[in-house]
């Protein structure tokens, strides 16, 4: 089941290649996150998360990752970062917040690393 992911992570460490295998695995999760383009859907999710996940047919692994707001687990469950960004947006999290979470550092440390990359 993890063949595509394993290949990609072997190829380029720490990097997902969102290909057909991941796109199939994450379809329901991504479809739910795509719905968060609309304010009324974000409100419906916040009103009853479990019911909203049920409506889109997320599997147990995806629902658990949603519950924990765990970006790496969501990616491994087939989430695509562009749709997941809409999920993160519900909580006011931006790409530095989720970058820090994924790399296990504080947001300040993540920002400092980006600034240092300017050379």
């Amino acid at each position: 089941m993890n063949a595509a992911l394993a290949n990609a992570e072997q190829e380029i460490p720490g990097t997902f290649i969102f290909d057909g295998a991941l796109a199939m695995r994450g379809y329901a999760l991504n479809k739910m996150c795509y719905s968060f383009n609309e304010a009324r859907n974000r409100a419906a999710f916040l009103a009853d998360e479990d019911a909203y996940c049920e409506l889109y047919g997320l599997d147990a692994r995806q629902r658990d990752a949603i519950r924990r707001r765990d970006v790496l687990a969501l990616l491994e469950a087939g989430g695509n970062i562009y749709y997941l960004a809409k999920f993160a947006g519900i909580f006011g999290l931006d790409v530095q917040d989720i970058g820090a979470q994924q790399t296990g550092v504080t947001v300040e440390a993540f920002r400092a690393k980006l600034a240092a990359a300017g050379g």
């Binding site: 997902f16 989720i98 970058g99 994924q102 990359a117 050379g119």
Partner: peptide
């Protein structure tokens, strides 16, 4: 740029 995965924050000047 890279937004996702453990390599998030990757930049190659």
């Amino acid at each position: 740029h890279q937004l996702d995965g453990r390599r998030a924050g990757f930049i190659n000047r």
